[in-house]
Simulated scan of single mutants.
Amino acid sequence: MIEFVYPWAFVLIILPLAVTLFAPAYKERKSSLKVPYFARLVDVTGEKPQSGAVLLNRNNLQRLLIAFSWLCIVTAIAKPEMIGAPINQEKSARDLMIAVDLSGSMSVEDFTLPKMINEVTSDGNNSNTITDKKQHINRLVAVKQVLNNFVKGREHDRLGLILFGDAPYLQAPFTDDITTWQALLNESDIGMAGQSTAFGDAIGLAISVFEQSNTQNRVLIVLTDGNDTASKVPPVEAAKVAAAHDIKIYTIAIGDPSAIGEEKVDLDVLNEMAEITQGKSFQALNSDELLAVYAEIDKLEPQQFDSLSFRPRVSIHHYPIALFVSIYLLALFVVNLRIRWQLIQQTAQKSSDGVTHD
Score class of each variant (00 low, 15 high):
Glu296Pro: 09
Ile316Asp: 05
Gln283Glu: 03
Trp341His: 14
Arg338Gln: 15
Phe333Gly: 14
Leu308Phe: 06
Arg340Pro: 07
Ile316Asn: 00
Arg338Ile: 09
Ile316Pro: 01
Glu289Val: 00
Val335Ala: 13
Ala331Trp: 04
Ile297Phe: 00
Ala284Arg: 06
Leu337Trp: 06
Ala331Glu: 07
Arg338Glu: 14
Asp298Val: 13
Phe305Lys: 11
Thr347Gln: 04
Ala295Met: 14
Phe324Met: 12
Asp298Ser: 06
Arg313Pro: 03
Ser307Pro: 08
Ile327Glu: 05
Ser315Arg: 01
Ala322Thr: 09
Val293Lys: 13
Ala295Val: 00
Ala331Lys: 02
Glu289Arg: 05
Leu332His: 06
Thr347Asn: 06
Arg340Asp: 09
Gln342Ile: 15
Glu301Trp: 00
Gln303Lys: 13
Ala284Ile: 05
Ala284Tyr: 10
Leu329His: 11
Ile327Cys: 07
Val293Arg: 13
Leu285Gly: 13
Val334Cys: 12
Ile321Gln: 15
Gln345Ile: 09
Phe305Tyr: 15
Asp306Tyr: 12
Leu330Val: 04
Gln345Lys: 12
Gln349Cys: 04
Ala348His: 05
Glu289Lys: 07
Ala348Glu: 12
Val334Trp: 11
Leu332Cys: 07
Leu323Glu: 07
Phe333Met: 10
Tyr328Thr: 11
Leu308Glu: 01
Asp306Met: 09
Ala295Arg: 03
Gln304Tyr: 04
Leu323Cys: 07
Leu323Pro: 01
Trp341Ala: 14
Gln283Trp: 04
Tyr319Gly: 01
Leu332Gly: 07
Ala295His: 15
Phe310His: 04
Trp341Val: 08
Glu296Gln: 08
Val325Ser: 07
Ala348Pro: 03
Pro312His: 10
Gln283Asp: 04
Ser287Trp: 01
Phe305Gln: 08
Glu301Thr: 01
Asp298Pro: 06
Asp306Leu: 02
Asp298Asn: 11
Pro312Asn: 10
Val293Met: 04
Leu343Gln: 13
Leu285Gln: 09
Phe310Ala: 00
Ala331Tyr: 03
Leu300Cys: 10
Val293Thr: 04
Leu308Ile: 11
Arg340Phe: 11
Val325Thr: 00
Asp306Glu: 15
Glu301Asn: 00
Val314Met: 03
Ala292Leu: 11
Leu337Asn: 11
Leu308Arg: 12
Pro302Gln: 08
His318Cys: 00
Asp298Cys: 06
Asp298Glu: 09
Ala284Asp: 10
Leu343Asp: 08
Thr347Ile: 05
Leu291His: 07
Val314Lys: 15
Asp288Glu: 14
Glu296Ser: 14
Leu330Thr: 07
Ile297Ala: 09
Gln283Cys: 00
Phe324Lys: 08
Leu300Ile: 11
Phe305Cys: 00
Leu329Gly: 02
Lys350Leu: 15
Ile327Ser: 13
Val335Cys: 12
Val335Leu: 15
Leu300Met: 10
Thr347Cys: 03
Leu323Ile: 11
Leu330Pro: 03
Gln342Gly: 14
Val335Tyr: 08
His318Gln: 05
Ile321Asn: 05
Asn286Leu: 13
Tyr328Gln: 05
Leu337Ala: 12
His317Glu: 14
Ser307Arg: 14
Glu301Arg: 01
Gln346Asp: 11
Asp288Met: 10
Lys350Ala: 12
Ala292Asn: 10
Ser287Met: 12
Gln303Arg: 08
Ala322Ile: 15
Lys350Glu: 13
Leu332Pro: 02
Gln349Asn: 05
Leu300Trp: 09
Gln345Met: 04
Leu290Gln: 02
Lys299Ile: 00
Val334Ala: 06
